[in-house]
């Protein structure tokens, strides 16, 4: 029982990171109807920046975290301003491929700039634990869940109650109508990328917490988060969060129990498991659990 509770808790903590990644995807999808394939590289960028600000410049963790997040957000904004702005109105395929290009460029630049070796994320918690009901919970996992929940709630409030949130929601609902009533599309897209950069950095730093490390290859985590966004429905922020937590828990429990209880499934099943869950869900609900089915017109 104790092991199960611990596995579940780790699952929730990974799920929180997935939820943040999924939120990053959803924000951009709602603003411009595309999937940002560079979300993983933004996440690695944020984590590497924060980590090296701490190790090379001796900044305190929270300050480094803030600067790292600001720089990652700036990178997202720069890509929107320098590249994507010129692709407005082009087919979705083109824009998605542009983000794939950014992913390729960023991955190579991070590799060359920071080096491929794993390093500490520089957080102050390390491997310290807190005892709750006799369970030894990692502080970093507690903070991951807390931060993710705070950010998700903050995003919800931002989305519901601010002018920018309203602009984003109306762009998501109908881009042309939004432009017609004078919503500045460029600024909406820009702020979507800023938000995506922010949550990417937060996700990256927490993902690199004990027992994990930070290296350019942590960008791969987005491929585990893809099932989360698809599962939840890509245009739904609630869906992103629910999907993230489901996939995190499924993955962690499979990694923990499948080798003993379902050994015939072989090694590395936990990598394939989220995708299998996703495909089953999609066969039943092609637009995910919370996604909206687009109406089609000729």
């Amino acid at each position: 029982m104790k092991t199960f509770a611990l596995q579940l808790f780790s699952g929730l903590s990974i799920g929180a990171v997935y939820a943040l990644i999924a939120l990053g995807f959803t924000v951009i999808f709602r603003a411009s109807r595309i999937i940002n394939f560079a979300q993983g590289e933004l996440l690695a960028l944020g984590a590497l920046l924060t980590s090296s600000l701490i190790s090379a410049h001796g900044l305190p963790f929270w300050l480094a975290f803030l600067i790292g997040a600001a720089l990652t957000a700036a990178a997202g904004f720069a890509f929107q301003t320098l590249v994507l702005r010129f692709a407005v109105g082009k087919p979705d395929f083109t824009i998605v491929m542009l983000t794939l290009g950014l992913a390729t460029v960023l991955a190579a630049a991070l590799d060359a700039g920071f080096g491929a070796y794993p390093r500490s994320n520089g957080d102050p918690w390390g491997s310290s634990v807190v005892h709750v009901f006799g369970l030894a919970l990692l502080w970093v996992q507690v903070w991951t869940i807390v931060t993710a929940v705070v950010l998700l709630v903050a995003f919800r409030l931002f989305n519901k109650h601010t002018k920018y949130g309203l602009a984003m929601r109306s762009t998501a609902a109908d881009t042309e109508a939004a432009v017609a009533v004078g919503i500045p599309l460029r600024r909406v897209h820009g702020s979507a990328w800023v938000l995506a950069g922010l949550v990417a950095c937060v996700g990256g730093v927490f993902l690199g917490g004990f027992p994990n490390t930070v290296s350019p290859s942590i960008s791969d985590v987005t491929f585990f988060a893809f099932p989360a966004i698809i599962l939840g429905g890509i245009d739904s922020t609630t869906g992103a969060v629910v999907g993230g937590f489901i996939i995190g828990v499924v993955q962690q429990l499979t990694a923990g129990y499948q080798p003993t209880y379902a050994a015939f499934l072989g090694q590395d099943f936990y990598i394939a498991a989220p995708y299998i869950v996703m495909i089953i869900v999609l066969l039943v609900r092609p637009y995910g659990l919370f996604g909206s089915r687009p109406a089609e017109r000729l």
């Binding site: 999937i35 979705d92 099932p227 499934l265 090694q267 990598i271 394939a272 637009y287």
Partner: peptide, 23 residues
């Protein structure tokens, strides 16, 4: 599936395929 959804499900093919190949 259509468009981007298809793109992501085909990513699943790669991971499920690698899992089968490993085992």
């Amino acid at each position: 599936l259509r468009g981007l959804y298809l793109g992501i499900v085909t990513i699943g093919l790669v991971y499920i395929g690698q899992w089968v190949a490993t085992n």
